[in-house]
Nucleic acid binder design. Structure first.
Lengths: 215, 215, 215, 215
DNA sequence: AATGAATGAGGGTTCATTCAT
DNA sequence: AATGAATGAACCCTCATTCAT
């Protein structure tokens, strides 16, 4: 009688399976990933994969949750939370996001993929994705708000407006960074990205004061 | 001796198949769509689908091309090309884009999906998608440039910078519109969207002059 | 009301179909030949092929019978019937056979193929083949017999024995000729074959008197 | 840790599948044989057949190779190699061939069929057949040559001539044996064939000395 | 607990045959 | 009479899932 668990799963195998699933699902997506390949890569049998995770669908879900967890667990919002001004904050947030992507490229790709596949995935997965991937922006909003409250906004401009536009610019620039990463696969450390991330500052400055020559 | 067709396909059935394919592919994506389902929905036999389109892959490609055509054929860039100022232009462009999406929601979803699936699709399709879906941003750039050249920009701000940021804001706001459409599936006419689109004006005005109270 | 036939078949189309069937069946065999290809080649519709011949199977059978007929009709046994001696007779018979093959290569190939496919063909066809392809040897036997009766045979050697062995040698040599034809596809006239056919004489002479030095 | 197999196929099922494939392919040929039928007959699932043999084509190829092997492995050329004289040698060779056919009737039929189908088969198979089925006659030639060299031949008769004619007669007689076997399906042992095979002697004697009364 | 051989439903594709025009 | 578009049974093959060992 083991003291640990009723099911007596081997935690190492469990981890290997999840790792392999992460690799495969993030690489090939849900449909083109084969359970056998995962089992092989984890150096366990196909049977064990099913014993531990019941179905391909559930394994995917678990991998998804595990990837989410990994981000949640590690996320250290303080890093950018106590930035002095708005621009620094957003730049730090972006830097932080990129660093996570560089540290966990497969988790990142997996979640992105899941998000994007949306309804093509089995219903249960689609549901999970939809309920999970929202909270993120809320968080960011919460952190930006105090800084924005300290700022003096133009009349007729609400905090929400600014917050939203910040996100748009952030996302837009983020896309540019992705492009850069895509064409420079050799980059694995956030240091290599510092320069490009700093340039985001410029765009926020434009945003703060407008692009039109103030007459 | 007919002067018209060599392949003697029934145009109605052809249309029904393409229509069904559009519906199914846009709804379920490539892998989860079954040729039989398309045939059933088009009220023709599976065999006919293959006679007309040879393979599932080619049917998808054809559906894709047809959707692209539909957009191309209808695209009337003049509608927003001769807008007076930048804001009006971008608002008009957005309105136009939304109107297309409302007119051809499945085509829209199909192309979006194809773009997003990327490498999970059969190679031939991925190739087509990659070679086709680029030109779009170039066009928009070309149209915006003259207007921007007429504008007086802040020192240190380049036309390209502004152009890029316009796109970011446009896209960001576009995302908000999508959300709205998603939660209001009853909307089918661009008129119902006018109000929300007009609000884009506000954001561009903020962008032009900055959100910070100019001291 | 036509005076010709109840079914009012167009004899030209009928002939074209049969011709095309001959070409296709002899080239690709029964299974790999497609009715559509035959119809196209005959410049008629697939439907007409079925109206005239009911089924692919029956069309094959008809083609087979027609090929047989063609050989029968043309076969002029007199050509070699009145050869002077045995050797001349067999050589003439062989030459004649080769000339037929050169004149009707597709018919020849078709019948050979049908014979060889045997039980892989639909039952009705197999049955036909089996019942038809026997009579041939009987005929040859009838013609050789009188000549053999005039010959003085070794004691213990029956006419049937000799007749049979003649066939074996003929067939064996025939195989050699086939090989030659296979490697010289440019040959289309019997004249080009005369030399090689003449060499059969040598073998029959060996056969007549044995190969062992007579003590 | 097993030292034996990496692929862990059940040898009994493997054998049953190969056996069923042999039966079906030899009976119906390549095209008319259905994988499902083979699976049923082997009392395994369709899936297993594909796991073991990947494709119908490869299964056929394997069956072909296995049949070839079976003949090769068992072929004991000594049996007739050290026959005293030419006649004995050829008779023994024939007897041996017939005994193989009686022992492995399906293998025999399969190989014959494959040889005969030739170009109607998928290319890979045709290629295999063509490269494999040649060496046989060469072997026989090598064995006959020393015996023929010891014989005194008539002037103008070469060893090759004699060798070739021997083959013709052997083949011819072999055809007669086939006919006999075809009409006597109850025969399963070489003993039942001894008498008919012995008669080949007579024909070779005729061949040695000719059938014409020597003057 | 762990294995991986075995299963079989399901999907794409072919082609002889039918039938409305 | 003639067409050829339309049909659908039949076939090969894949892969998630099961289960005996």
């Amino acid at each position: 009688m083991s003291t640990t668990s009723r099911l007596a799963r081997d935690p190492e195998k469990e981890a290997r399976i999840l790792m392999a699933a992460l690799t495969e699902f993030s690489e090939h997506g849900y449909r083109k990933t084969h359970v056998e390949e995962i089992a092989d890569q984890a150096e366990v049998s196909k049977g064990l994969v099913f014993k531990y995770y019941q179905s391909k669908e559930n394994l995917y879900l678990t991998t998804l949750k595990s990837a989410t967890q990994k981000f949640m667990a590690i996320a250290d919002y303080n890093i950018w939370q106590d930035s002095e001004d708005l621009v620094a904050m957003v730049v730090n947030a972006t830097r932080y996001k990129i660093s996570l992507q560089l540290k966990f490229p497969r988790e990142f790709k997996l979640l992105l993929n899941a998000f994007v596949q949306g309804s093509q995935l089995p219903k249960a997965i689609g549901d999970y994705v939809n309920t999970t991937f929202i909270s993120n922006t809320d968080l960011q909003k919460k952190m930006l708000t105090p800084v924005l409250q300290r700022s003096k906004l133009k009349p007729g401009v609400s905090i929400d407006d600014v917050y939203e536009m910040i996100r748009w610019i952030e996302n837009g620039y983020y896309g540019r960074i992705q492009e850069y990463l895509g064409t420079h696969p050799e980059i694995t450390s956030i240091e290599d990205m510092n320069e490009i991330i700093e340039q985001l500052t410029k765009y926020f400055e434009i945003f703060e004061h407008g692009f039109m020559a103030s007459n």
